[in-house]
Design a protein around this nucleic acid. Structure first.
Length: 252
DNA sequence: AAAAATTACAACCGCAGAGGG
DNA sequence: ACCCTCTGCGGTTGTAATTTT
């Protein structure tokens, strides 16, 4: 990363020590948001510590950066996580674990913070309900063989019914038989480390070609699980008692 | 209607790595 | 080679909003 700490001095820099005395914390005000947005619009982002001083914000550079990246940036997407995004998050997390920023790179407009929050509030909650660790094989199997096929089914249904759903589906790459360079298809942007998304899982999910030795989801996942839909916001009303441990484990 | 519990999200903290002096 | 500053990341906490009792 490029450092230009001394590259662009500002007149208020000499007052740094005094300002450090009463740095603001906590929620940002509308006025602060405006100041930050205006400053970044005219000067660009980066060099957050000096930016904070020059903009006259009594905030740390870190705080300014976080506010901009997670909230004020124009391309930040707000609102519910779509089934496509849920599917991507589940898949990417199974590959990369808690590498939120990396996962976020594959969900345009979503921040690592948002994805992390989603994971903690939704996914981990249900792992807790199942009384298993979110990183356990059992829970991963549930994700892979129950939730993900179900999500895919919903995505496909939406794509069939609504023309506007198609572009979102395409983001899932080979899942939808779309551009293999995007999303699940792996592509030019994959890591050198070889932990990129490979086609196998995507094809399993897309084509129903389940891995050898894996429990067939056909008789279960596709019979319809309204509880799952409710749980993941795919269906109508929500329900907390959305599944039963025994029902699930005897099928796995 | 009010209190308690839960959920969702924004923000902070500590750390590691990069780069300049 | 070492120190300092800055950035970015992941973990955690605080709190407003919502739901349940």
């Amino acid at each position: 990363m490029k450092m230009e700490v001394h590259g662009r001095a500002c007149s208020s820099e000499t007052a740094q020590s005094e300002e450090e005395m009463d740095l603001r914390r906590g929620p940002w005000t509308v006025e602060e948001d405006l100041v930050l947005m205006n400053y970044i619009n005219s000067h660009g982002e980066g060099r957050w510590n000096s930016l904070a001083r020059c903009a006259g914000l009594r905030r740390t550079g870190k705080s300014c950066r976080l506010r901009w990246l997670n909230y004020l940036r124009p391309d930040v997407r707000r609102g519910n996580i779509t089934p496509e995004e849920q599917l991507l998050i589940l898949e990417l997390h199974s590959r990369w674990g808690n590498r939120w920023s990396k996962i976020a790179q594959h969900l345009p407009g979503r921040t690592d913070n948002e994805i992390k929050n989603y994971w903690r509030t939704r996914v981990q909650k249900h792992a807790k309900q199942l009384q298993c660790d979110v990183n356990s094989k059992q829970f991963k199997d549930v994700m892979r063989y129950l939730w993900m096929p179900r999500l895919l089914e919903r995505i496909r249904a939406a794509a069939g019914n609504s023309p506007t759903a198609a572009p979102n589906l395409a983001e899932c790459g080979t899942l939808a038989g779309g551009d293999p360079t995007v999303g699940f298809g792996g592509g030019a942007e994959e890591d050198k480390g070889g932990d990129g998304i490979q086609g196998d899982v995507a094809m399993e999910m897309a084509g129903g070609g389940w891995p050898e030795g894996a429990p067939s989801p056909g008789g279960y996942a596709y019979q319809g699980l309204p509880e799952l839909e409710q749980c993941w916001g795919l269906g109508g009303e929500t329900s907390e008692n959305w599944w039963n441990m025994e029902d699930i484990w005897h099928l796995l």
